[in-house]
Design a protein around this nucleic acid. Structure first.
Length: 675
DNA sequence: TTAACTGGAAAA
DNA sequence: TTTCCAGTTAAC
């Protein structure tokens, strides 16, 4: 290693001064040592992005490349540099002949490893994202490049096999039922960069279709990157890619499996040994060589919103890459996000979807009205649903989606829906078992018998019922049938073809070997009633993902209000129409993404003076400030969609000015997932 | 973290 | 006017 200490000994005449140990002399010596470093013969200047979180320092700094590091200090490698008196990590982003910096360049302290982990494409992407989200490149790079694992670096990456099992004819068949599907594939195979929003039909084996898209891209000599929201979906893609391409062609990037495995798989991509990548949101940054396709499944899933600064969304990350690296793009899902609809509307992407008659053949969706309180035994499972389940069970497994897990839940009057309160302390009543009377959750007093103080009703209902309770009820209604549950903490990934009732919470639905014979959606009003701007869009997405698991010709029944637009969209499988309607409503209400929104949060004083520094673009609205739970305060800035770029720039300028003046930090989120 | 800079006070 | 020092600032 070439640190300054060793360099000193190489300098003639310097040893004489070593005896003098005053601080001043030491400083002079250090300076001379720096000056005496032999610079690299070629391109002696390295441009380095330093890992500091300050917005005004978010630019490359020039360092002198010592001759001894000339070979290793290539663009993309990790280095240690002296920055403001401290050793900090950084990445070399370029080697150049000369600097524009007036004054002496400090030499690089150390090349951490010659491994080129930051490709030029990802360095540029980090810049794009930092600008888009008014953050700093260092934060993006922390998301993009996994921590180094030295032992793993010593191993070589196994190259992918040269022969692939991908079959163009099989791929065309798999996509054949979709309008523009085969054309999209062919375009990929020929080296083109088509962009599409794909509305999957119920029963579509989406992992296989995506695997074929990756195969077609690989056949053109390019790499492909496919993101899915969670590890369960990634596992399905993994299996489909192995089936379609054969083993060893792709690599899976997720946060699971520990740092060594993560770094090993990342290196296989960075070194170009693998060019097909699947993974969760962090995989969007994979430095795939010759990237030809970016794809993501179910872009409306909020798992795609990165919880760490600068809070980039996977959709945005991938679409920026598609633009900058001129790749094809495929945004697929059973449902359609409002953002996906915008891609079509602006002409950025084309639609791939099944024709009407194909959709009609795939599934029949009906709505069963919600049971009324008049019923002496208010069953949550109406007669229609019971019949659908019975019919489905003759053919195979049936799926019942029920919102939220849990057994002990708030109770309310079944006539007027007044929440049931304890007569002694006014605490909430709850059922603690299937047979015991309801009791207070605070003081434990049993309400036996209970009557409603508002209307005198004697019936109780649980407005929120969990999967355990639902499984219970169904077990009683179908005594000789296997009932299985799948929810957040205990997820089933797959069920076989035998008749069984599978109760699952949204997102935890297993896949059935041959598809579910029937799909039932309970308590749709609960998903619709969430206090969220996107409640209806999100509800439709979750229902559609369950209905998507049906076998061709299957039946789906949703329990809810047949007049609700989200349920009507489900029945007609008209996700484009629903997204269009959502866009129109949000335009009127100036809600995102029809408007672009950012939040500024922090100490009240800091937020206040941030606003005086902020140069808002034309037509901007300021909402708030409102106090947050932790004593901080938040304002919302809203601009017309077309001004989004200017808003990002203004917020970036604000952060640079504030960090330059050492003002108290404010947290800025552009396009926050929730407000 | 620290070298370089600033401005104000003491020394000449 | 010069020198010294503490506090501030930029950071290659």
């Amino acid at each position: 290693m070439n640190d300054a200490g060793e360099q000193q000994d190489l300098l003639p005449g310097l040893k004489a001064t070593v005896a003098d140990s005053s601080a001043k002399a030491r400083a002079t010596r250090a300076r001379k040592a720096a000056a005496a470093v032999e610079p690299a013969a070629e391109q002696p200047v390295a441009r380095v992005l330093v890992d500091v979180p300050l917005a005004h320092l978010d630019r490359p700094f020039d360092y002198l490349v010592p001759a001894a590091m000339a070979g290793d200090a290539q663009p993309g490698v990790r280095v240690k540099v002296r920055f403001a008196g401290q050793d900090v990590d950084g990445y070399v982003v370029a080697r150049v002949d000369a600097t524009e910096h007036e004054g002496r360049l400090t030499p690089l302290r150390r090349v951490v490893s010659p491994e080129r982990v930051l490709s030029p494409a990802i360095a540029e992407l980090a810049g794009d994202l930092a600008q888009r989200y008014a953050g700093v490149r260092a934060d993006v790079l922390r998301l993009a490049v996994p921590p180094r694992h030295a032992a793993t670096e010593k191993q070589e990456s196994e190259p992918a096999p040269t022969e692939s099992a991908w079959d163009a004819a099989a791929a065309a068949r798999a996509w054949g039922h979709l309008d523009h599907g085969p054309a999209f594939l062919q375009h990929l195979q020929e080296g083109g960069s088509p962009r599409a929003v794909w509305g999957a039909a119920p029963g579509d084996d989406w992992p296989t279709l995506l695997a074929h898209a990756a195969g077609a891209t690989a056949a053109s000599g390019r790499g492909a990157l496919v993101c899915a929201p969670d590890v369960k979906d990634v596992a399905r893609l993994d299996a489909a890619l192995t089936a379609v391409l054969g083993p060893g062609h792709h690599v899976v990037l997720t946060s699971e499996g520990g740092p060594a495995a993560r770094y090993r798989d990342f290196l296989a991509v960075a070194r170009g040994a693998r060019r097909i990548v699947v993974g969760t949101r962090s995989a969007a940054f994979a430095p795939v060589h010759d990237l030809g396709l970016v794809a993501l499944w179910d872009d409306g899933d909020d798992l795609y919103a990165e919880p760490r600064a600068p809070y980039p969304h996977t959709r945005e990350t991938l679409l920026l890459r598609a633009e900058r690296e001129r790749t094809a793009a495929l945004v697929g899902g059973y449902a359609r996000s409002v953002e996906g609809e915008y891609l079509l509307r602006t002409g950025w992407a084309r639609e791939i979807a099944a024709p009407r008659e194909e959709l009609r053949a795939r599934v029949t969706v009906r709505v069963a009205g919600e049971p009324r309180g008049r019923d002496p035994h208010p069953a949550r499972i109406p007669r229609d649903v019971h019949a659908a389940l019975q019919e489905g069970l003759r053919e195979g497994p049936v799926l019942v989606q029920t919102p939220r897990a849990g057994y002990v839940l708030a109770l309310a009057c079944d006539r007027c829906r007044t929440p049931a309160r304890c007569e002694v302390c006014a605490g909430p009543l709850a059922l603690t078992g299937a047979t015991t009377p309801p009791a207070c959750r605070w003081c434990g007093t049993a309400a036996d018998p209970w009557s409603c103080p508002e209307c005198g009703g004697r019936g109780l209902r649980a407005p929120v019922l969990g999967d355990a309770r639902t499984a219970d009820e169904l077990g009683r209604a179908f005594p000789h049938t296997v009932v299985r549950t799948s929810s957040r903490d205990r997820v089933l990934t797959e069920v076989d073809d035998r008749p069984a009732i599978v109760v699952a919470t949204p997102g935890a639905e297993p896949v059935a070997a041959g598809g579910f014979a029937a799909v039932v959606l309970l308590d749709t009003h609960l998903l619709l009633g969430r206090a969220d701007l996107r409640a209806a869009e999100e509800a439709l997405r979750r229902w559609s993902n369950a209905v998507g698991l049906v076998r061709p010709g299957g039946l789906a029944v949703a329990v809810g209000d047949p007049a609700h637009p989200a349920l009507q969209a489900l029945v007609r499988w008209d996700h484009g129409g629903f997204a269009t309607r959502e866009i129109e409503e949000r335009q009127e209400a100036h809600l995102p993404p029809a408007s672009r929104v950012a939040t500024i949060a922090g100490e009240p004083g800091a937020v206040d003076d941030a606003l005086t520094l902020l140069q808002l673009p034309e037509g901007a609205d300021l909402l708030g400030p409102v106090p947050l739970d932790d004593g901080e305060e938040r304002v919302v800035v809203r601009v017309p969609r077309a001004q989004g770029g200017r808003l990002s720039r203004a917020l970036g300028d604000l952060q640079r000015v504030r960090s330059g003046r050492k003002l108290d930090a404010v947290r800025i989120q552009v396009d926050p997932v929730s407000l």
